[in-house]
Amino acid sequence: MPELTLIEALRQAMDEEMARDDRVFITGEDVGPRGGVFRATLGLYEKYGAQRVIDSPLAELSIVGVGIGAALYGMRPICEIQFADFIFPAFNQILNEDARMYYRSGGEWAVPMVIRAPYGGGVGGGLYHSASVEAFFAHMPGLKVVIPSNPADAKGLLKSSVRDPNPVLFLEPKKGYRLIKGNVPEGEYTVPLGQAAVSREGADLTVIAYGIMHYYCLQAAEKLAAEGVSVEVVDVRTLLPLDKDTLLASVRKTGKALIVHEDNLTGGYGGELAAIIADEAFTDLDAPVKRLAAPDVPGVPFSHPLQDWFMPNPEKIAHAMRELAAY
C-alpha cells in the first residue's frame, strides 16, 4: 500500500472517477492548467482536457448553479470552491436548489453533484481563508456533508460522493492536505457515506471528532495512553447523515464523551452530537458531555499567536481528555 498525502488521495479519487465515468467533470476557480490553488486537480486538465476540467469565473454562485444544471442534464459535476470561506455566495443555490431538488420534484429530479471545499484554520490564512462551515450545511436535510480525516478515507469517500445520486458537500481539512499522510489501498475501493469509524479503541472515554481535529485527537490519545488513560476515538466522517449508532455504542461503553471541532463553540456541530448523546445515552453517562471547540470570535485571527489561541491542538485536546478522565 503506497503512502499518500491527503491531497494526493483526493486527486487519485477524482482521476479514477473521471477515467471510470466520462460524465464526471470538474469546474472551479483555477482548477484547469493551474491545477487549483492547492494543486488538488494537478495534471487532470492535461489528462482529460479543457472540456472536463473547466476554469470558472470568480463566482461561486455560478459554479454551483452551473453544476446543478449540468447534473440535472445527466452530468456528474465536481465543483470546487477555492476556500470554504467563499461558499456563501452559493449558499442559496446549495440550500434552496441543490439540497431540495429531489424532495421538491417528488423524486423525479436528483442532483448528483459534489461540491469540494477546503476548510479550516491553522494555515495562517486569516479571516478569509480559514473558516469552518460545516455547521451551516449539516443543518440542511437533503444535503450530505462529508469530512475525511485521512488519505484512505478521503479517496474512498470522495469516490462514493461522486457516485452518490444526490448532492454531497465534501469539506477537506486543508491544513491536513500535505500534513496527513497514510497508506491508501491499491485498486478500486470506496468508503460508504453515513458510516462513522472507531479509529482507536479505548475504555476510559470517547473522543469524537472529524477532519484535522480527528488527526489531533489520535495524537492526544497516544499521549494519554502513555499516562495510563485509555481513549477511544471516533471519526465522524459523514456529518450528514450521521451514524448515531457507532457514536452511541462507543459512549455507552466508556460513559464519557468529549467532542472536538475547530469551528467555534456556539451553534457548532458538536452541540448536535452532545444533544444526541445526552438524549440517547443518558443512563450510561458517567460525566457531563464535554465540547472542545474554538472560541466564539468572528473568525480565525491572522496573527499567529492569536491563531494558536484560536485553534484546538493536540495539547489542548490532551488537557481536555485528562480533565474528563479525572472527572
Partner: peptide
C-alpha cells in the same frame, strides 16, 4: 456510616 456520596452520575446510579 452515612457519608456524602458526592455526585452520582446516571450510569453509576444505573
Amino acid at each position: 456510616p452515612q457519608r456524602d456520596l458526592g455526585f452520582i452520575s446516571p450510569v453509576v446510579a444505573k
